[in-house]
Design a protein around this nucleic acid. Sequence first.
DNA 1: GCGACAG
DNA 2: ATCTTGTCGC
Length: 245
Amino acid sequence: MPDSVNRMITPELNYDLLTIGEATAIQKGLREQLSLEPMQKEIRTIAGADISLSLYSQTVYAGIVVLSYPELQPIAYSLVKSSTTFPYVPGYLAFREIPAILKAYEQMPVRPDVVMFDGNGILHSRRMGIGSHFGVLTGAVTMGCAKKKLAGKYDEPEPLQGAYSHVIDKGEVIGYALRTKSNVKPVFISPGHQMSLQDSLDIAMQCVRKHRLPEPTRRAHEYVNLFRTGQLQEGYHEIEQLRLF
DNA sequence: GCGACAG
DNA sequence: ATCTTGTCGC
């Protein structure tokens, strides 16, 4: 089938012309399809998804890095250069980043068991952060890991690695403030889609190594920055494993 | 009206 | 998010 025809029946997702009011309506609709049922399947791969931008540019560099689990070794990555005019508005990050991340996702021949986003899942005023939005859109199992709080209230967790506290909004637990390293600011964990609050916390803890950020989002951030600075090329790539015997 | 506000 | 140098602490 000619490429021109294919594009007509599978148009790219484009949120650029939406108003905030329309975006809010979309979030409310997606929320009705959200599932927070506990995971059943065993995790063998987990991916991190992120975007890198040049200041004042509409060009976005999207990437997804797939890691083995529980080893957390990068085994493949997908990079896509795209553009967006939807501005950054707190609470609407998905409309700016998802179109590009979706391209990177669809370009991959493999489907990771979990996708972790640099942003939130249900830790959002309408329970529809970028992780949940992407999950409902694709059916993927997703979660969020944000570096700053977006919504809700929480008590500061003890300053020890592994300590955590609930983030609560309107009387319900919507995520956790998790101390991934002692005496370092916590990260904010929440389920996106097809997993429970407890699942998201367990997975986040299993993904912490030497840094504040869990490996999936840390690697995704690293890779999209290498892409933006010309040190990695667009496309899908598998990483040859170094065998030491 | 005031404060908060992922990336 | 990105732009930036040194500096403090484990």
